[in-house]
Design a protein around this nucleic acid. Sequence first.
DNA 1: GAACAACGCACC
DNA 2: AAACGGTGCGTTGTTC
Length: 603
Amino acid sequence: MPVVTKETADLVVRSFADYHIFGLDLETTGLNPYTGAKLFSLIISTADEDYYFNFDGTPDHLGNLAPYNTVLPLRLLPYIITALKGGTVFIHNAKFDQKFLLVEEVLALNSCRVICTYALGRLVNNLLISYSLDALGKLIGYEKDDSVEKYITKHKLYTKVDVGKKSPRKDKHYNLVPFDIISNYGMRDGRVCYELGIYILTRLEEMSEEQIKLGLLPLMPVVEREIELTPVLLDMEHTGIKINRAYTREAYEYQKDQYQEIEQKFYALTGLDFEDGRKTLTAAFKKMGLEHGYTEKGNPSFKDELLPDNTLGNLIRDWRHSYKLATTYYKNFLDIADDNDVIHCNFKQGGTSTGRFSCSEPNLQNVPKHGEDSNKYPVRSCFIPREDYFFLMVDYDQMEYRLLLDLAGEEEIINKIKGGLDVHTATAEEMDVDRFAAKTLNFMLLYGGGAQKLANALGTNLQDAKAKKNKYFRTLTKVKSIVNALINTVDRRGFVTNRFGRRLQKPVEGSYKIPNHFIQGGCGDIVKIAMVEVAKLLRPYKSRMLLQIHDELLIELHKDEKHLVPKIVKAMQGAYKEISLPLTAGTDYSNTNWYDKEPYNEK
DNA sequence: GAACAACGCACC
DNA sequence: AAACGGTGCGTTGTTC
């Protein structure tokens, strides 16, 4: 396992011309390249060897330096990466490594076929517990190597950073780990990446063949699309979304004042220091002589719907509201934004079992909308378009229901929708109930809910709920049969494939979940197709996608490129052409922020 | 002191 | 027989 030296570097790099497949890994000083973390080594694995390129000439925590002749100048980086040109490069969580290269202005991976083993691992089996390199490596016989993590913990090679939360953030310093340990660890990860990539691709091709033999759609187009999506997501994240720092800070201070004031009131009322936990709240209710609810397990429960509508209950409610906004949103945004006030989130390409993305650091897919709950500082107002740009938000109309109706072939309802009715109203008309009941029933169906939950949601008794459910399936007979067919298939075969060839495994102890997975995943695939198309469309322009929120795209559109709007909408609406009812999308825009939006057509 | 479960709440 | 789906992240509280 060779560490590359000044003497061998040139020879090693030139030998890459003999290979077409590589594993790649980086070691970095921290996790966020936009707030100062740097790469300090590069590992390239070929079929025959693992090479460790070290760029770190600084001492480890013991004061020791890497051997002098192993310290390469960082300017070699483009030269090394360029040598991979045209090759296939397996990287676990590829966007992470690519961002570190991008901030060093190394673009050479663009001319490679980068394959993210995290994204593709999810396609091999969508229901694994973990898709970490350790977990996936185990599938091909590599035991977990936690030597570096252990070393960091043992020698406390981390800094605790106070970010205003109750628990400080721990920044680990991988560059302080002794050279022998980090280099061997790195080269092993490069090897695992390489072998894992080969394994995953082989397995996916087998699975695809298997699906074809069963008369199902092939898997490989899904695989190919995920590969195409990696650079699309990378662009989105690297561009990032700008925040209004002054506004966000003001909002944070305001909400902090709010919840601190509530803490004072709580103390005055109960004589207790406020904590949002069972102990304190139970004591507070006891002191006030008030009743509270219980969880299913019989523990005291203080969740919103069980909190009484009295002074104490409302104090807790208001505290939580302010505290949530202050910490999860405003404070987190301030902390995570870079020096240009830009937030670079992480769209996790293998983040869900159904095929959606998830989003983290921060999660920009759960930013409050503030419908009924008024807020002096709407959270979405934190996000602003850059100079000469405006926000364009395009979201699909009732996407999941439409896909379900299409899948089932419920012609009567489909015709009503084609005639201009909204999905829930059409359902309501068809089965002769009010719109609210129809909408609730549609929801229940999509989530596999039972009669009891339906009764709760409708505010009726169990019997009535059962009757409504029966009526629903008596009317929407085709929906009923497709739901049953999916459950039967997954029970018999252990998996189903959706309309795009994506494979969904049988949920453990819960085949009833499969219709939901099927529809949710189908929508995920449609949006992914749309994103690839929109990315292609925007490539020659300044306008760019910033966020995906499941059925919605947030695009930063340049003011000179308004002619692109209809093309974007068309690309989205046409992402699933075989659908038997229109897949429409609504368009809003904003010149100011993500909250204050207006319909685009009325402009 | 760290790791884990449970809870609670923001989104689609 | 019934089962409300998919996330991320902050907290408290328990356990080792």
